[in-house]
Measured scan of single mutants.
Amino acid sequence: IRLYEREDYRGQMIEFTEDCSCLQDRFRFNEIHSLNVLEGSWVLYELSNYRGRQYLLMPGDYRRYQDWGATNARVGSLRRV
């Protein structure tokens, strides 16, 4: 999964292949505005340590956080399923 700091895949990008319990420890931002799921399925959590609202993401492109059903861009952790 590739996470981007801004909409439309702009700004700083980070790629994950494994679970991350605290996004801010690995990426200086806690807001993700766009992403690409390259393979497999992922769950994004609004808070760190896999807490808060959850969003199940299938392979595909998500140009804005609204595309995955979120009401804001906050992402605290993520897990591959």
Rank of each mutant, 00 (worst) to 15 (best):
G69L: 14
R51V: 11
L23W: 02
V43I: 01
L56A: 12
G69H: 11
W68H: 12
D67G: 09
G76T: 05
G60M: 04
N36L: 06
L38A: 06
R51I: 02
R64Y: 11
N36Y: 05
H33K: 06
R74V: 11
C20R: 13
C22S: 10
E7C: 02
G60R: 07
R26F: 02
R79G: 08
Q12I: 06
R63T: 11
L35S: 07
V37S: 15
R79Q: 12
R53F: 02
T17N: 09
R63E: 13
N30F: 02
F27R: 04
L38Y: 04
N49T: 01
Y45L: 01
P59T: 07
S48C: 10
S21M: 03
Y4G: 01
V37L: 14
R6A: 12
L3F: 09
E31V: 05
R53C: 04
L47G: 08
Q24I: 07
F16W: 15
R26C: 13
N36C: 07
Y65D: 12
G60A: 07
L38V: 07
F29K: 01
R64S: 08
T17Y: 10
L56M: 15
G52F: 01
L23S: 15
R51F: 04
I1G: 02
E46W: 00
H33R: 09
E5H: 03
R64E: 02
F16R: 13
M13C: 03
Y4F: 14
N49D: 06
A73F: 03
L56T: 14
N72D: 09
M13T: 04
F27E: 13
S21E: 13
N30I: 15
V37G: 02
W42T: 01
R79M: 13
Y55H: 08
S34W: 00
E15C: 10
L78S: 02
Y9D: 06
E7F: 04
G60Q: 09
E5G: 08
D8I: 04
L35V: 12
N72T: 11
I14H: 03
Q54V: 03
I14C: 09
L23P: 08
Q66C: 06
R74E: 14
T71M: 04
T71S: 13
S21N: 03
L57I: 03
S41V: 04
F16D: 03
G40P: 06
I1A: 15
A73W: 14
L23F: 08
L56P: 14
Q54K: 07
V43H: 04
I14L: 05
P59K: 04
D8V: 07
E46K: 02
Y4R: 02
R64I: 07
R79H: 02
S21K: 07
E15Q: 04
V43N: 03
N36G: 05
N72S: 12
D61P: 07
E39Q: 06
F27V: 05
E5I: 13
L47P: 00
V43G: 08
V75P: 09
R2L: 03
E5T: 04
E15R: 06
Q12T: 07
R51G: 13
N72L: 15
L3T: 02
R74N: 14
E15W: 05
V43K: 04
G60L: 03
G69W: 12
E31C: 03
E5V: 12
T71L: 12
G11R: 01
C22V: 06
S34Y: 00
